[in-house]
Design a protein around this nucleic acid. Sequence first.
DNA 1: GATGAATGAGAGTTCATTCAT
DNA 2: TATGAATGAACTCTCATTCAT
Lengths: 192, 192, 192, 192
Amino acid sequence: MEKRNLKQQIITTAGNLFYTKGYNTTGINEIISKSNVAKATLYHHFKSKEAICIAYLEAKHSLFMASLTNSIASENSTKAKLLGIFEYLRSEFRKEDFGGCWAIKLLGEIPQNDKNIKPLIVRQKKELIVFLNQLVGDSVKNASKAEIEQLSNSIYLLYETAITESYLHKSDWPIFQSRSIAQKLIAEIDLK
Amino acid sequence: MEKRNLKQQIITTAGNLFYTKGYNTTGINEIISKSNVAKATLYHHFKSKEAICIAYLEAKHSLFMASLTNSIASENSTKAKLLGIFEYLRSEFRKEDFGGCWAIKLLGEIPQNDKNIKPLIVRQKKELIVFLNQLVGDSVKNASKAEIEQLSNSIYLLYETAITESYLHKSDWPIFQSRSIAQKLIAEIDLK
Amino acid sequence: MEKRNLKQQIITTAGNLFYTKGYNTTGINEIISKSNVAKATLYHHFKSKEAICIAYLEAKHSLFMASLTNSIASENSTKAKLLGIFEYLRSEFRKEDFGGCWAIKLLGEIPQNDKNIKPLIVRQKKELIVFLNQLVGDSVKNASKAEIEQLSNSIYLLYETAITESYLHKSDWPIFQSRSIAQKLIAEIDLK
Amino acid sequence: MEKRNLKQQIITTAGNLFYTKGYNTTGINEIISKSNVAKATLYHHFKSKEAICIAYLEAKHSLFMASLTNSIASENSTKAKLLGIFEYLRSEFRKEDFGGCWAIKLLGEIPQNDKNIKPLIVRQKKELIVFLNQLVGDSVKNASKAEIEQLSNSIYLLYETAITESYLHKSDWPIFQSRSIAQKLIAEIDLK
DNA sequence: GATGAATGAGAGTTCATTCAT
DNA sequence: TATGAATGAACTCTCATTCAT
């Protein structure tokens, strides 16, 4: 325990548990014992278990957006960048603790009428949609706004299905298949 | 209470709760009170909560496969049948209690190393994949086995993303977008 | 299931479970499943679990008294008969499922103020005491009633400690030691 | 409730119930209501009911060894000390809540293959055996190790039967009879 | 800033028994 | 005679959270 990153420590530990075991299945006691933090200390930093979950989601999303951006930065063309998303996913899939999309998984754990976590997830997914939309839009030659949106939305949907289904089937075929479909869609539009 | 459908009654009640509230969030007490059954009666029919969940998954899957099959039966061409899948999904989406894919949601609730529910879900998804593969394969003119598989797998992936994302965004655009992509892929292959 | 010894079948099965697992730890469901009898059938023959226990105790005691009597019958002298009791116990100890005294074990499972099982156990133990008293009394030459009683009571106490302690320590030294003490006491009195 | 002896409080309350009602017959709810402690508080201090039982056994054994030691300390000779054990037992027998040997009773409640409680009981009984062996050994004049062991083991067996049988028959005759036998055995050996 | 003791509510499961057939 | 469905009460244990220090 290095003293000052106690809060981060908790988020990391709890996050790993949420991701591998599930949110509801992970108890506060497990979090405190695994992160070597006293119970009252945990509640000093977070007002509730839900607050930890939200912090975890935010950290995970930031890291994801940064990693993704960084991962495709080296590609020269927009085409390559878009397909690079699926390469990035493949590298994630290969990691031992890969467990699909943290946000989609959480979605299954919370009531349909949840008011805190669900809206956050929606916001984050929309951020990804916007990111993709800008990526496509920045380099398009001759295409309407609608065409741009259709392509970026499609890639979003393909990314989403690829991550969930590769976890479900424990195989990377959904990633390859999604990438293949994306490739066809990209070919239709005129990119720089 | 019509006397002898107690077991079905429990599955239905529990299933609705699992679907709307989540599996872990739904307690046995809520199930028994909502289905007007004594706790010991429930455990007379099911050895555990997990057993109820499995029965629920099986019932849901059977019903889904039957509904889907029936829903696209009236279409004349295979093309129409394949696109009919997305029409079917739209009709589901419009229902008030639509909550996305029951199986994918459950996936988020159970530990990564679960030995009972997860394999069942995988089996059921594979059944859908096989169903789609046969649907395409039965009516193809000139296409290799690999081409057939690629199309049916693609439609599977698109269906999956459509159901999850339409629930997440509370909008049917993912269904339309997925349908649109499917249409393009179908057009590439020579179907009867 | 040969039809007619259903009641016996239940007593035997339940008895084995009571003896090896304990009375309270053994459930009605385990009894019915292991004895291949329907629940209602069991309750047709016995009004309660306690009734089964009482039947079991009676069966066990009868068998015990008969076995013991038979086992020492071949001995010529009373001295040999008395020591034969410990030989009998040794043969019981060697059996794989030996678990000490069924009655003493039951004593630990029931409340101090029990009104049905405890008195039965006391009665049965007193029967053993009387049996030993007669065995000694029948063949004594010169000894007062008090002397006879002291010897038979002593042998009873030594038998009791031998059975319980050999089970507890999983060793036959308590049987040998008890037998040795008994031998000394017997030597003091003038037997035929 | 004097604040900080909650753990002890639970052991005492539970112990009394285990002793008078039996281990399996005593429920956690009864323990918490009688000791005015919340259920979660109990489980904060003990990980399971079995853990309470083990704590109870250890406390009871410590107290017993100390009481016994103290009770016979005033006697001058080893002979008197050895016989003092039975005097000690008589004083226990006279107490209103006397219920025989806590350990032997527990032995009847747990499955033959128990891995936690049974070994503890065996260990404690062996401790008593060693205690008696040293008591005899320390003051013997002319006797082999084997003779010493036979005497101390015999006294152990007699003590054990005395406590169990006096409880069973609700009479102190087994104590007197055991003491009488012990006296004879002690007379045979040459003690200081 | 940091703690461990304490909690009310509820988790899932099993109990011995009864009832309608 | 024989049955399996149904039950209320009780079981052991865990939950996320708060409190006094």
